[in-house]
Write a protein that binds this DNA or RNA. Structure first.
Length: 173
DNA sequence: CCCTGATTCGC
DNA sequence: GCGAATCAGG
């Protein structure tokens, strides 16, 4: 199917309405989302209300030209990735201040977490705000406080309701 | 793995 | 002009 005036008009409308390229493609029918995106660019309306855009162009390195379309051909071009690794000077591995976090647990990042620092996770590991406790290790990989939480067997069994347990645990998170 | 838009370039 | 392939992200 080609781009009739009407289909282009529909495309414009839906795009401005904030629909995604794939949704527009599905609604128009007979085109893929790539076709829609391509058309959008050609029409010069690539930018719209962009929710999660860096605002700044964020400098993108121009992609090396595509190796040409060869159907059913070995896609990967062998590349000597090993050679240039040696040229780089050995980056000093970090002076190793090894500073324990005494207060404000959770300021140890994956980068600053030392060998003997409490590895109690704080926050959402999939988020970039993720940290570790970072205080001095006591038992196992944890500080004394977190070790208690980690290794409490069935001690809390008497009257500790589920909500009470949850509350006590939350303190450590 | 799902999705998003962006880009390149053979057709 | 078109859009598949590919990329870079969320």
């Amino acid at each position: 199917m080609g781009w009739t005036d009407e289909r282009v008009e529909t495309l414009k409308k839906l795009w401005q309405d904030g629909l995604s390229a794939s949704q527009i493609a599905k609604q128009l029918g007979g085109v893929t989302r790539n076709a829609v995106i391509g058309k959008v660019h050609r029409l010069g309306l690539s930018g719209r209300a962009a929710p999660s855009k860096p605002a700044r162009p964020v400098f993108k390195a121009p992609r090396p030209a595509r190796p040409a379309a060869q159907p059913a051909a070995p896609r990967r071009i062998a590349e000597p990735a090993v050679a240039q690794a040696a040229a780089a000077p050995a980056p000093t591995p970090v002076p190793s201040p090894v500073r324990y976090v005494e207060e404000a647990p959770g300021s140890a990042t994956v980068l600053t977490l030392g060998a003997h620092m409490c590895k109690w996770p704080i926050g959402d590991p999939s988020s970039d705000g993720f940290t570790f406790c970072g205080r001095r290790q006591s038992e196992g990989p944890y500080c004394a406080e977190h070790a208690r939480v980690a290794y409490q067997p069935a001690q809390a069994k008497k009257r500790s309701s589920a909500s009470e347990l949850a509350r006590s645990l939350r303190r450590y998170i």
